[in-house]
């Protein structure tokens, strides 16, 4: 595989649109970006004069802050719009919001939205490059990229890694983006969750699907835990969180069957005692804080690479 020299699209809508060379390009660029975070003056003039709009229609703290920090470190001018207090709550459609923003000539729009495909809708309306910061249950591409950067840093490679992803597979955009990225880069992915939370058609993505966490974790190089939301009980998905932890929670005992140098990841925010035991979350395996640091670098890389593309 050869590393790409550019991204083919002006947008980052999902990992589905990236080939392995483009993924390597983003990760390599992120490695260079990461050094900036170690400097006394953590700022470079790369996006000076560029405007980036952060359009967050869904509550998000870590992703929004991570994007904001990435934008500021690249010297972009940033504006944030969150749903509370915006015209969105006054019944304006996404298309109209997009057209209004368009009139302010932003270069890039970062969007988080509860409906799958919203960034795609935006990309058909706006001239600006669109960055998907999580759409519904579809994709969260920068999360998968920062996860991949973390794995590559710790393991030196992605190809051939055994990666177990455990949790709510049905509603997780993190799962989809990670599966697409990891299978594309040659990793072996095992997806594990309760049968009620496994989407039909997941196997078709080239993933080993199981309802046994022990099977998923055995000899794994990486164990990635997904957040389980309390409201899943009301959709008849789960009888109780207690039972969920008993069957699917990651404990030191379960982790003992993984590879000896296993790393444990979580996209956050964690539910301690639901999907992950505190002893695991805070243990030597945990790379959860690396993920946060890498998030800023990956987002800087994505913004930098997309900002170079001609506005048409």
């Amino acid at each position: 595989m050869t590393v790409a020299t550019r991204l083919r699209s002006r947008h980052l809508l999902g990992i589905a649109d990236l080939d392995p060379g483009e993924i390597e390009l983003i990760l390599d660029t992120a490695v260079a970006m990461k050094e900036i975070g170690t400097r006394t003056i953590k700022k470079v003039p790369a996006l000076r004069g560029r405007t980036v709009v952060n359009l967050f229609f869904e509550a998000s703290t870590r992703t929004r802050l991570s994007f904001e920090l990435a934008e500021k470190r690249l010297s972009a001018d940033t504006m944030g719009i969150t749903t509370a207090g915006s015209s969105v709550t006054k019944g304006e459609t996404l298309a109209d919001t997009a057209r209004t923003l368009e009139a302010m000539s932003p270069d890039l729009i970062v969007i988080r939205h509860a409906a799958s495909g919203s960034p795609h809708l935006l990309s058909t309306i706006c001239k600006a490059g669109i960055v998907n910061a999580g759409d519904g249950t579809h994709e969260h591409p920068t999360q998968a990229l920062l996860d991949a950067l973390t794995m590559r840093e710790r393991k030196g490679r992605l190809a051939g890694l055994k990666v177990a992803i455990v949790g709510d597979l049905l509603h997780s955009r993190v799962l989809r983006s990670n599966v697409l990225l990891l299978t594309r880069m040659g990793a072996e992915v095992r997806a594990c969750g309760p049968a009620t939370l496994i989407p039909l058609g997941l196997k078709a993505l080239g993933v080993h699907v199981t309802t046994s966490i022990d099977e998923a974790v055995k000899d794994a190089d990486v164990v990635m835990m997904l957040r389980v939301q309390h409201e899943r009980m009301y959709g008849l998905f789960l009888p109780s969180l207690r039972e969920y932890f008993n069957l699917f929670g990651l404990t030191p005992a379960r982790l003992a069957h993984a590879a000896s140098d296993v790393i444990v990841m979580h996209p956050g925010p964690m539910n301690r005692g639901v999907e992950i035991d505190s002893a695991v979350a805070d243990g030597p395996w945990s790379v959860i804080l690396d993920q946060v640091a890498n998030g800023v670098a990956v987002r800087m890389a994505v913004l930098y690479l997309l900002a170079g593309e001609e506005l048409t």
């Binding site: 020299t5 550019r6 991204l7 390009l25 390599d28 660029t29 260079a32 970006m33 003039p45 996006l47 000076r48 004069g49 560029r50 890389a301 930098y304 690479l305 900002a307 170079g308 593309e309 001609e310 506005l311």
Partner: peptide, 11 residues
């Protein structure tokens, strides 16, 4: 910062 045609230089 110019809107040049083509990709960003490799970092």
């Amino acid at each position: 910062m110019k809107h040049q045609v083509g990709p960003q230089p490799i970092l």
